[in-house]
Design a protein around this nucleic acid. Sequence first.
DNA 1: GGATTATATCTTGATATCAAGGTATGTAGG
DNA 2: CCTACATACCTTGATATCAAGATATAATCC
Lengths: 162, 162
Amino acid sequence: MDHVDHILKQWRQERPDLDVAPMGTIGRVKRLNHTLMRAMEKTWAKYGLTDAGFDVLATLRREGAPYALSPSDLMASTMVTSGTMTHRIHQLEKSGLIERVKNPDDGRGFLISLSQRGFDLIDEAVAAHVETQAQLVSGLTDEQRQQLDALLKQFLAGVEQE
Amino acid sequence: MDHVDHILKQWRQERPDLDVAPMGTIGRVKRLNHTLMRAMEKTWAKYGLTDAGFDVLATLRREGAPYALSPSDLMASTMVTSGTMTHRIHQLEKSGLIERVKNPDDGRGFLISLSQRGFDLIDEAVAAHVETQAQLVSGLTDEQRQQLDALLKQFLAGVEQE
DNA sequence: GGATTATATCTTGATATCAAGGTATGTAGG
DNA sequence: CCTACATACCTTGATATCAAGATATAATCC
């Protein structure tokens, strides 16, 4: 009987006409996301990073050499709007972790690339981050985690298509 | 090969020293949460509500008569800080959906209670919300959804204890 | 090549959130 | 009763986000 079970119980009492089973599933996803984010933020903070900054640097890093993407590519990868990405880029540029160069192939745009400092920082931070994540999933066995992956993947495929 | 699989593939190429399997699980939770929230916001917006407002009104409604809780109780239920709850309460009060009365049992605090309009609105909005949620989970069978519930519950129990 | 449409990014304005600290009221110990 | 501590809520200041619209460049079509 966790927090979400309690909520469902209350609804079944107050609104027995509603089928609240899906609310339980979605509620757990929301709550889990919230708790996981809070935990991971602590690791990012050790490297002077936020969710937003880590997200951008990691996207550039895992892309491989030459560690550069356009703002549009970054937007698509990170699920934020253009205004948000502009803001993130300015912050990271001010910190000297990325550089902004004119896109030689498209005069309208730029390329965002990791600076050497940005590369070194994210390479170290991501190792710590992976360790934190391993700790966070340690309540599940490997097999359970794989089952969960499969279900989440199917769920996601269902809601992302449109 | 979804978006998350692509990310893991990139990391395995660039950083074969890291075990990124947990990142896949956590990444799917994050992405799923984001997509679900975006979808549910559309329903809330039809009733002039945001995530924040719906959250508070629903918490009061499912509590049962007399539909009143202290700001502290609301904070605990909704996982936000006191500053955020103060702000939410002011917004909802301005909209006439809740009322704030002095707590007769504790001179330091207040009780937040649903107004008649607030009650009517949330009672209608939650029915639409439940329908939206049913649609969102329709990519899973009932059995799969229940399996997912069980795994999420265990995952959550592992990360929430501290 | 000029007009039209599409694309890439930035700007603006409104909200929501948090962390840290402030104020008022309650509670417990001597 | 008075002091010390605890609790409940609010205020402040800094960020992050989004939606909508602005601007500049590219691509396409006669």
